[in-house]
Design a protein around this nucleic acid. Structure first.
Lengths: 204, 204
DNA sequence: GTATAGTTTAACTGTTTGGTTAATCGCTTT
DNA sequence: AAAGCGATTAACCAAACAGTTAAACTATAC
């Protein structure tokens, strides 16, 4: 079984590392805990991934490669701005439910080490605003959409969708909600948020 | 000089701890590094604050006590909803410039330890939505503002204002901006964001 | 069946880290 | 001037930690 276990253990390690790193961060994670969660010896971690930093980077890149396509969808598909916003908003909530710790993990670790994103930017799949910018400029000059820069609109879309999950404990406290009703709030946002954005930018 | 230095060192420690904890987080911070930054011996940290956890809590509570009044302003002053949004949005950007690491620090540490907010909720100054809710309900039934729940609107206000600072490295990469032009973007948001919100919710 | 090569482990190492201790310093009081 | 006391330090300690090593295990090739 040894050789067939090969790929299996490697994936098991990555999966365990994902759980630990995404909840505790690079500094809070312990190699021993990852090994325990993967059900293997600690030395085996170093056999597959040479050290903590490399294991972390594998997890981080993997996480980012899940998030990036979600964003690229808003920026590069061929539908109208209005539809892009609608689709992204409803899809993103579903996406997050599958990967609840992901956005916070990425944001937290990028703040700890901002140079890290330079490596990611070299990738050709890295989200790019150009197409979105052209489309928006056209819609604005056509009078479909009120004047707004692509950067500001993009920031607003990200903010309204991502922030409620990143700041979940804080917002739960302010709004006095438990987990169940918070999830209901988030479920409502699938349509609330896109209406909110479109209301704001669409010419009447 | 010893007794006069008393209050001075305690504040120096808290200040150094603030800088280290807010940039590196609880797990990434080192007691030695805090001592060095405060210009004192490591044992003196334990003399004033018994251990790392208590020193951290002092820093955290201090940070939260700066943020809370900013939020309470939106919720409890007597101006119109429109003015609240305008004021908060422009004030918040100025506030952040003075305390750039603060929102991220609070969000990050609350995610690491969500039970921590329970202690804070006991405080009577803890931001409360009740007044805001009543005001909004009235404005909605008076036809001044389009139907929206207080929770959703409050989340939107926080998201649009706070997220760009929390996710700064990520957004800088997506929008291809350096520090200078990012700050310009943020400066523009002082008016952009409040217009964006008011456009969306105000009845025409 | 045994040599080979990749996989896995137990045990170990060196260093970092939070925290302690006992001594010293310097001001104030008497 | 010396006793008293809070503030400060150097030196130390035990635990936790990332990483290493050398041996054992297991499937396959010959």
């Amino acid at each position: 079984m040894a050789k067939s276990k090969n790929k299996n253990t490697e994936a098991q390690i990555l999966n365990a590392a994902k759980q630990i790193f995404q909840t505790k961060g690079m500094d809070g994670a312990r190699m021993q805990e990852i090994a325990d969660k993967a059900g293997i010896n600690k030395a085996l971690l170093h056999y597959y991934y040479r050290n903590k930093q490399l294991l972390f980077e594998a997890v981080f890149k993997n996480a980012f490669s899940l998030l990036a396509p979600q964003l690229s969808a808003v920026l590069n598909d061929d539908s109208s701005i209005e539809n892009k916003i609608k689709n992204f908003t409803s899809n993103y909530v579903s996406f997050i439910i599958k990967h609840p710790y992901l956005p916070n993990f990425i944001i937290q670790e990028l703040n700890r080490n901002p140079e890290f994103i330079l490596k990611l930017k070299e990738n050709k799949d890295f989200p790019n605003l150009e197409k979105f910018k052209i489309q928006l400029t056209k819609d604005v000059s056509d009078g479909i959409i009120k004047p707004i820069s692509a950067e500001q609109l993009f920031i607003n879309i990200l903010a309204l969708n991502i922030f409620p999950f990143v700041a979940k404990p804080l917002i739960m406290a302010f709004t006095n909600t438990d987990n169940k009703s918070y999830n209901r709030l988030m479920e409502n946002r699938k349509t609330e948020v896109s209406n909110f954005i479109i209301n704001s930018i669409k010419h009447t």
